[in-house]
Design a protein around this nucleic acid. Structure first.
Lengths: 193, 193
DNA sequence: TTATTTTCTTGACATATGTCAAGCGCTCAA
DNA sequence: TTGAGCGCTTGACATATGTCAAGAAAATAA
């Protein structure tokens, strides 16, 4: 089983024989640090599967004063500006490689042909989208109910590796706090241990 | 065209002849103010379409100190604890009528039979879920990039009617601020005009 | 209607978090 | 190896927002 098949199999329960077909629909792409997967306002007609590295979603706030990091994706996850991909609208975010990255990429047209390989694909896609939606609901609840320190802790417990691998200022922004607050929370929790 | 057909037709582009069939799969349900559509920890196997009234999603924060309003749905929208509905997990939220409400309700089993009435239902459902996901991404971006006052203003411009129809304390919570801050922002913007 | 409860507002004050500015310490390229 | 940037930390201070308590207003019940 190739790496991509392994990953996809983790997301969806798919029969071995179909996995190879599915995997063959993707194309290997590399991004070097700083390169863009999508630029804001452009149209993005692809979905990427991030094999390794980190990719940041960001945009300016409404006044153009500061860059806000919407999300940082780690290896093993899908990457897409889903609004642009699905509704052919302008991208809301820049999606940029924070490190050198390797991806598997698939075009919109190809994505829509997956159903020919895997008949129950619509169901799997639905479950995938639902899972994404539920994750976002939980993320909103976290912002409504938790302090900056609690949000930091949650990240630390959920995804500790990321803390050594991407600029902390971007993690701070993704968690909705300033880099200074992030640094202080971090210090406090270090000393407490 | 009945009310439900009219609503559904707004969400999805569906042929007239299919609409009646689809609508007939729903059941009329009323809730009086204070009644629950779902209680937290229970299993919810239905989706509701809110004809009129307001329904609040809420749960306690992690310490059990305060109730947090995740969302308030207005008439003309679907209501569901989607995680419980799709993955048969315990509900994360209470979903409670803030006013007397009329709904159309459909069970999980019935929902899965819609495809027999409308063959392209999986595609419509996917578009619907994607739209929900995009909405949540935008809501998170709002929390990362906007002040309390800006979030209030956005609600005021997007959905002004809601401000006279549900307790402001719940709107405050949904926007991630205290009732006092909500009240002060409100006063400030009233005076400014 | 009147009584009772709930919700909203307001002031005084507390606290979390943001801002600014300086210094330190990496990293990376020459 | 050595600058030159960039990113992180820290202190001093500013500000947004939260908390508490009281009273006013509105909704609900009797």
């Amino acid at each position: 089983m190739t790496e991509l098949e392994n990953y996809i199999s983790g997301y969806f329960g798919i029969a071995q024989k179909d996995l190879a077909n599915l995997a063959s629909m993707f194309e290997e792409v590399s991004l070097t640090k700083g390169e863009y997967f999508v630029k804001k306002e452009q149209y993005s007609q692809t979905i990427g599967f991030l094999r390794n590295g980190f990719i940041r979603y960001y945009a300016s706030d409404q006044h153009g004063n500061k860059e806000v990091t919407q999300w940082i994706a780690s290896g093993g996850n899908f990457i897409a500006e889903i609004s642009s991909f699905t509704f052919k609208t302008a991208s809301r975010f820049n999606i940029q490689a924070l490190t050198d990255c390797q991806l598997y990429v698939i075009s919109n047209e190809r994505w829509n042909e997956i159903v020919n390989v895997i008949p129950r694909w619509p169901e799997l896609e639905k479950l995938f989208l639902t899972k994404c939606f539920v994750t976002m609901e939980n993320r909103i609840f976290a912002h409504l109910s938790m302090t900056a320190e609690e949000r930091y802790l949650e990240l630390f417990e959920t995804n500790p590796e990321i803390l050594n691998q991407v600029p902390l200022q971007h993690l701070a922004s993704m968690l909705g706090m300033s880099p200074e607050t992030f640094s202080r929370v971090r210090k406090k929790l270090m000393e407490a241990k």
